[in-house]
């Protein structure tokens, strides 16, 4: 009788184990469209669609302003200045800035310098060193590189509030385009994305 109970227990445990194995085997990952409507929406994070929407709205605003069209030289040379992250999250601000750069570059109206950077930190040190090496070999002074006519700076902000069980978070993406010659902010805009929910949710 004792042996029979042990056998039944063993079969049950084995069945449970196999069931769990089969179940976890079905939880396979899948590809979804990064630009689609199946991406995950969470309250506590800036999601991929938030970066996309913010970049898209800010680029549209900049193009509609007509500032680039009025620039004395085309295409405009843009330098990337300080992008401050004042949110509670550890984010790479290139998630926003790179998209803005790519979209502006595609319009043919803007090129971004990669050899002039804030505090001497350049995006492409090899390009800078190669230019300096070539200048040295040709007995020429160090090349200054194409200096930016405009610089892009910005700030990411976060505002949280809640009432009862409902939580709300607003992410603010602020951008400023400064004309280097005058030091004036010739274009400024901000895009706010607000998400509300009781807990993290999937989908739109």
């Amino acid at each position: 009788m004792k042996n029979r109970n042990a056998l039944v227990r063993l079969v049950a445990i084995s069945g449970l184990g196999l069931g769990l194995l089969a179940f976890s085997g079905c939880q396979s990952a899948r590809y979804i469209d990064s630009e689609g409507t199946e991406t995950i929406v969470t309250l506590d994070q800036i999601n991929i669609q938030d970066w996309n929407n913010a970049a898209n709205e800010l680029v549209t605003s900049l193009l509609e302003s007509g500032v680039l069209e009025r620039a004395p030289e085309q295409p405009v040379i843009l330098g990337i200045s300080r992008i401050t992250n004042n949110t509670m999250q550890q984010v790479d601000t290139d998630s926003l800035v790179k998209k803005i750069r790519v979209d502006l570059n595609k319009t043919g109206k803007v090129v971004t310098t990669t050899t002039v950077g804030l505090g001497g930190r350049v995006e492409d040190p090899l390009a800078k060193e190669t230019a300096e090496y070539q200048a040295f070999m040709n007995d020429q002074p160090n090349p200054a590189g194409a200096m930016p006519q405009y610089t892009l700076s910005g700030k990411l902000l976060e505002d949280r509030s809640s009432t009862g069980r409902t939580r709300q978070v607003t992410y603010t993406f602020q951008m400023t385009l400064t004309e280097v010659a005058t030091g004036l902010a010739v274009w400024e805009d901000e895009k706010q994305i607000t998400k509300q929910g009781k807990r993290s949710s999937v989908g739109w």
Binding site: S34, E35, G36, N53, A55, N56, V102, D103, K106, W204
Partner: peptide, 20 residues
Amino acid sequence: ASSSTWKSLRLMGGEVRSIS
């Protein structure tokens, strides 16, 4: 476009709104 993506629009009843 790198930032071309589906966007969500909330329309109140009877509301007229433009997207661009």
